[in-house]
Each structure stands twice: as C-alpha cells, then as structure tokens.
Amino acid sequence: MKMKIITLAISVALLAACQQSSQPAQSPQSPIKKGMVKVSILYPNGEGKHFDMDYYVKTHMPLVATLLGDSLKALSIDKGIGSGRPGPMPYLAIGHLYFERLSAYEGALAPYTDTIRKDILKYTNIAPVIQISEVLE
C-alpha cells in the first residue's frame, strides 16, 4: 500500500509539473489493462465557472487516491487547453480513475462519497459529469 501511495504521489507530481496531460498510453508496465473500468470526471467549461487546478492536482486527487485505497489501480488528470473547433475548450479538466471492475469502484467509493463531494466545493463551482467506461484498448 505504501509503495502504491508513493507511486500515485509521483504520478500526481509529474502531472502537476506538466500542467497538462493526456490519457495514459498502455504499455507492458502500465497498470491500465483491457477490461478495466475507467471512471472519468468531466468539468464542463462555461461562463462564470472556475476551477482551481493546483488544488485539484495537489490536494483533491491525492485525497481521492488515499480514500479509494488498493481498489484504485491508476489515475490521470487532463487539463483542457483547446477544442477541435474554434471556440473555448469544452472541459476545464477531466480526472480519470481506473479499477479492475465496477464493483471495486462502487465499494471503495461508498463510504467516502460525502467527503469527496464536500472537497469538490474547495476547488470548483462546477457540477462534474461522470462517465463510467470499459477500457477496450
């Protein structure tokens, strides 16, 4: 568990240093495998919306990683920087959490839902959109 927290902390620190990331590429060493469940938390852009990326990267996501424990296999953070067409980016940020199966996510999250929701208010006024997907590649 200690090694996993250190690994996640290093990953979050690297993401913070880059201030932008893309979805992690799968490799032989990647913890992300076909058939896993990916929970994406999307924060839509819009007038009057704010998002504290520094808090999200350095405080919120490490908190989430600690609370979800060993059921969380990997995480990544995307910072919106543009769109595929003229105009503003559609999302300010997207967080991705990876689990072996849906029941692992649900079981790990259940005791901490209120804690996580209360912390969201510390970095944004955006109601996140949640997408749960199966990793195919």
Rank of each mutant, 00 (worst) to 15 (best):
V39H: 06
T124E: 09
S133K: 06
D114M: 00
S27P: 11
Y105V: 08
S30G: 09
M3Y: 12
I81E: 08
D70T: 11
I5A: 09
D70W: 02
V64T: 09
L97E: 10
L109H: 11
M3C: 05
R101W: 01
L14Q: 14
L121Q: 13
L109K: 11
I77L: 13
T113A: 14
P111N: 05
L75Q: 12
Q29K: 00
I5R: 10
A104R: 06
V64Q: 10
G69M: 01
P86T: 08
N125L: 10
E134G: 05
P44I: 01
S103W: 03
K73R: 15
L42M: 12
E137F: 08
A108W: 02
Q23D: 09
M36N: 00
R117T: 07
R101Y: 07
Y123G: 10
F51T: 04
G46N: 12
G48E: 10
A9Y: 02
Q29G: 11
A127P: 06
Q26D: 07
E106F: 05
D119I: 00
L109I: 13
Y43W: 10
V39N: 02
Q26E: 06
T115Q: 13
S133P: 01
L42F: 11
A13G: 11
I41Y: 06
A127L: 13
P88H: 10
Q19E: 15
S40I: 01
A17V: 06
K33Y: 00
E100R: 05
A110E: 15
K58H: 15
I41P: 07
G107P: 03
T115M: 09
G84I: 09
A74I: 02
Y55F: 14
F99R: 01
P24T: 01
Y98I: 02
D78G: 05
L75G: 12
K33V: 07
R101V: 05
K38N: 05
I6G: 03
E106Q: 15
P88D: 15
N45Y: 12
V37C: 02
S22M: 08
K73Y: 02
T7D: 15
G87I: 06
I77V: 11
E134L: 08
Q131S: 09
D54R: 13
P62L: 00
T115D: 08
E47T: 06
L67M: 07
P62V: 06
L109C: 07
V129R: 04
T66C: 06
P62E: 00
M89P: 10
L72R: 05
G35Q: 10
F51G: 04
P24M: 09
P128H: 02
G82L: 05
L97R: 04
E47V: 05
A65G: 15
P44A: 07
P90E: 11
S11H: 08
A108I: 03
V129D: 06
